[in-house]
């Protein structure tokens, strides 16, 4: 894994990507380049094709047209030739999809041991480390059903990390959670984003998170990328009317904000996510910030 200098080869390139389910054209010629190590938030109305973009990259759906490249290689879901790049991608699902018949620890160690051939003892040590990072080391021997949704999602993040992917995909990881549990998961993801040089794609409705964690925000609507830019730009000075409308509907669902209807509304400040719950990562982040100053 690359540690300092970012690889000049993009992590993923979508070229004129099309995807239909029967008659329903979901992606209509999508172009997108994700740099190596980039943290990208994908926002957009429900049904705009955000999940489909992630599922195509994960190989859970087959392309209807166009091309996808991963780390410079042509990528075809399910093809043998794409196996090695596919193995470098991990995913966190909206509904966690933990294995209910395995303990938290086995959920995390199963794939490294069975797929990568990591020694069980070594896999366990790494798993405990990861559980520590997501603040759940005392839950190792619990079953998923014994955990809250937020805890299950943090286990799912640890499980994906255990395979040491180079690209991590997050599909609305907090939208199946009760509101009070969202914060812990967002913090874990933020800490991860700030401390690692993994490429990360977040599909999310958490605008505060997108605004303060992503390097770039992509607004999708009706199967294409409408607008893409630095979060400050996209949230404060969106170019497209569709983007403005969407942001308004998310940030002010009741239409109570004062002022002109096309004014840009503020996204909540960074501390709305709150302080880190993972001191281990926070230390690393502080370290890096000190070095930068």
């Amino acid at each position: 894994m690359n540690n300092n200098s970012p690889n000049p080869t993009p992590a993923a390139i979508f070229r004129d990507v099309q995807k239909s389910f029967g008659e329903n054209k979901v992606l209509k010629g999508l172009d997108l380049t994700i740099a190596d190590g980039e943290k990208v938030a994908i926002i957009g109305p429900s049904g705009s094709g955000k999940t489909t973009v992630l599922r195509l990259l994960m190989g859970l759906e087959k392309l209807s047209g166009g091309h996808i490249e991963v780390f410079g290689k042509d990528y075809v879901a399910g093809a043998k030739a794409s196996r090695d790049v596919a193995d470098r991608i991990g995913m966190v699902f909206q509904h966690f999809n933990l294995f209910p018949h395995m303990t938290v620890l086995r959920n995390i160690t199963e794939a490294p041991v069975r797929v990568r051939g990591v020694k069980p003892a070594e896999a366990k040590k790494r798993a405990m480390n990861l559980l520590d990072q997501v603040g759940l080391s005392e839950k190792a021997d619990f079953y998923p059903r014994q955990l809250s949704g937020g805890q299950q999602q943090r286990v799912a993040i640890a499980r994906a990390l255990a395979m040491q992917p180079d690209i991590m995909l997050f599909d609305e990881p907090t939208s199946a959670l009760d509101p009070e549990l969202v914060g812990d998961v967002l913090k874990v993801m933020r800490d991860l984003a700030e401390s690692s040089n993994m490429t990360m794609l977040f599909v999310t409705h958490e605008m505060t998170f997108a605004r303060h964690v992503a390097d770039r925000v992509i607004f999708m609507d009706q199967g294409i990328v409408v607008e893409s830019g630095h979060p400050d730009e996209l949230f404060q000075a969106p170019h497209e009317q569709r983007t403005r409308n969407f942001l308004r509907s998310v940030l002010d669902p009741m239409g109570w904000a004062e002022g002109p209807k096309d004014a840009v509304l503020p996204v909540a400040p960074v501390d709305a996510i709150g302080p880190s719950i993972a001191p281990f990562i926070q230390d690393a982040v502080n370290e890096r910030n000190r070095a930068a100053n």
């Binding site: 859970l60 991608i89 991990g90 699902f93 999809n97 933990l98």
Partner: peptide
């Protein structure tokens, strides 16, 4: 649940391994 197949795939399990283990 279909999500169990998808999670297995995301963790690079083969078809046989997903069937047996998950």
């Amino acid at each position: 649940d279909k999500g169990q197949w998808e999670a297995s795939h995301a963790l690079s399990f083969s078809w046989g391994m997903a069937v047996r283990r998950v």
